[in-house]
Design a protein around this nucleic acid. Sequence first.
RNA 1: GUGGCCGUAGCUCAAUUGGUUAGAGCACCAGGUUGUGGUCCUGGGGGUUGGGGGUUCGAGUCCCCUCGGUCACCCCA
Length: 422
Amino acid sequence: MDLSPPRGTLDFLPPDGDRMLALYDRAAGLARSYGYRYVETPGFERTELFSLTSGQTSDIVTKEMYTFKDRGRRSLTLRPEGTAPVMRAYLNRLSGGPSAFKAYYLTRMYRYGRPQAGRYREHRQFGIEVFGVAGATADVETIAVGDRFLRSLGLSRYHIELNSIGDEVCRPAYRAELIDYLQANRERLRDEHRDRIEENPLRVLYCKDEACRAIAAEAPKIVDRLCGPCREHFDAVQEGLEDQDIKATLTPTLVRGLDYYTRTAYEFVSEVLSQAQATLFGGGRYDRLAEALGGPRVPGVGFGMGLERVLLALKDEGVEPPSEPAPDAFVVGIGEVGGKRARDVARALREAGLAVDRSFEDRPLGAQLRMADRSEARYAVIVGEREAAAGTVTVRRLADGWQETLPLDLAIERIARGGEPG
RNA sequence: GUGGCCGUAGCUCAAUUGGUUAGAGCACCAGGUUGUGGUCCUGGGGGUUGGGGGUUCGAGUCCCCUCGGUCACCCCA
């Protein structure tokens, strides 16, 4: 059979697997340091969770969902995004009034579409969400977390696009004004936009086509039409970012693809990736999401970050991606006696907290040293008949061939310290 | 989902206007070296040229279909 992974999916074999795992580790550590708690939600949900929240005209709902019927004829959908499921789980547990909750997740998302580099049918996301906090401080924190994550990996060639898309008070009036404007300029728009002026006028603004851009540039801007509270909130977000020296570019044409977003919208855009995959992550505020699910009003803000894309950006910026550490030592056992003792030596090293690999088979010393070399372990620990008889081991540093024969407990100390004898 | 480009060994690539047994480097395995790896030398395994069909005396090369990748678009992560 065809052994390649299904279209739009990826295998993460070494060393790629180590890199993805390292990304998970870094993300989890950073999120924890900000007080976010890890959550997991099901890989699939009731289809209506997404159709109710994302919006009937969204790309996700209209053409990207992996929807299927199970044997009980329930309509289920592979999770295309992380926010709605986490909110669902939060609301499900909620009793009494909404309380503040900070969550992060590291998991896979599924969207049907034509794949290319950096866009897949199955991809992994690092996401964080702050529920129950309406203030701009929360918006700023999510941006700061994302920014710090990318910087800590060594990325620098990206910028932040920021906008406010208002709320249920100011957006309807703006929307009507925008529709009027777009209708007036109808003839100059691309065909595909003409039909959607009424249904999703905001999205026409984000078109990359030059003619459309010219029209978008002249269009009324939502940031000029914000109601008092939205204006205040947006100002506070911008001030908060300045306080932390995070530069964000006001981008009036930035909108969100999903219906539940309100107020703050932002995207971190790579300057080295091609445009089709340049968005490293996108986020924003979604104060109406809980209500769309039939819950109370629960303000929220967060982002979702595509990790395959982060890896791509690292590659294109020429930055070495983080990886999992190689073993500390590779234990080499020679002959029957040496082999048995090697097993015990490996166990002792592991119990001392070291990462240790060894050969499953009794192979010649040279072959096992070659294995040790390939494992990238810093030390080979050789146990042959001579060592077995003397109750010692030979520690060999693979980088330069320095080696010494000494008792096991001293060897463990040396390896743990990573140095030569004192 | 729409349009363009590309598919030769695990990887990077070669193969005269269509011509005989599809090659090389790297990687991998073995030996030189039965207690010393990473260097070197020698040898070896590995391909239905993505798959199927067609044209032709003859197809890696030309045509069609299909699968996959990739680029642009839609949109995002």
